[in-house]
Computed example of a mutant assay.
Amino acid sequence: MQPGEAALAKVWAEVLNLPVAQLGRDANFFDLGGHSLRLVALQAALKQRLGLQVPLVELFAHTTIAALARHLGAREQPAASAALQTAGDDAARQREALMRRRRAAAAGALR
């Protein structure tokens, strides 16, 4: 997954109550157990977590993580791309920090 897709996947996983690892970039929201009420919850979560205002009609039209990320990147809303990139950058920094902590812990255990 691309960084923006990873940020979307995190929000989808929360709304669908699924582990992120279970979400493929081409998995359909509705095939994963989503329905119209969860789509409304997704819309609210995207606004709250990523600062993205996405009309419901756009969420119905772009029902995979990859399609939605592509659509948001192509929209004439630079904030959407920036928010997705920032969220992806944050996730990458968190992974790097976790790996540093694990390496440090492993090095301490070897002493």
Results as ranks from 00 to 15, higher is better:
67 A>R: 13
87 A>C: 11
56 L>I: 09
42 L>I: 00
11 V>R: 00
82 A>F: 02
64 T>Y: 12
15 V>Q: 00
59 L>I: 11
87 A>R: 10
52 L>P: 00
10 K>N: 08
71 H>S: 11
61 A>C: 06
69 A>V: 05
22 Q>A: 15
66 A>Y: 07
73 G>T: 08
69 A>F: 02
81 S>T: 14
81 S>D: 04
54 V>T: 14
49 R>I: 00
83 A>S: 15
76 E>L: 10
77 Q>Y: 04
50 L>C: 09
73 G>M: 08
32 L>M: 14
47 K>T: 08
66 A>E: 11
5 E>T: 04
93 R>Q: 15
34 G>F: 01
70 R>A: 14
107 A>H: 03
20 V>T: 11
37 L>V: 05
92 A>F: 07
84 L>Q: 14
46 L>G: 06
66 A>F: 03
74 A>C: 03
41 A>T: 12
7 A>W: 01
62 H>N: 15
76 E>Y: 05
23 L>Q: 00
96 E>D: 13
1 M>K: 04
56 L>Q: 07
23 L>V: 02
46 L>D: 12
3 P>L: 07
15 V>M: 02
40 V>Q: 03
9 A>E: 08
11 V>L: 00
49 R>L: 06
80 A>C: 13
101 R>V: 03
98 L>G: 05
67 A>S: 15
37 L>R: 13
71 H>R: 08
37 L>Q: 13
109 A>S: 09
88 G>W: 01
1 M>R: 04
64 T>G: 05
20 V>C: 07
110 L>W: 03
17 N>K: 09
101 R>E: 15
64 T>D: 12
24 G>N: 09
3 P>R: 10
80 A>L: 10
16 L>M: 06
33 G>F: 02
17 N>F: 00
56 L>K: 06
47 K>D: 11
72 L>W: 10
25 R>Q: 13
45 A>I: 00
89 D>K: 13
83 A>H: 11
47 K>V: 03
52 L>S: 02
49 R>K: 14
85 Q>W: 01
2 Q>E: 10
108 G>R: 12
58 E>H: 14
66 A>Q: 11
19 P>W: 12
25 R>C: 08
93 R>M: 04
45 A>N: 04
100 R>Q: 14
43 Q>W: 03
108 G>I: 04
62 H>S: 05
58 E>G: 01
29 F>P: 01
86 T>S: 15
59 L>P: 09
106 A>P: 05
27 A>V: 04
107 A>G: 03
33 G>A: 05
34 G>T: 02
25 R>P: 11
25 R>H: 08
4 G>L: 03
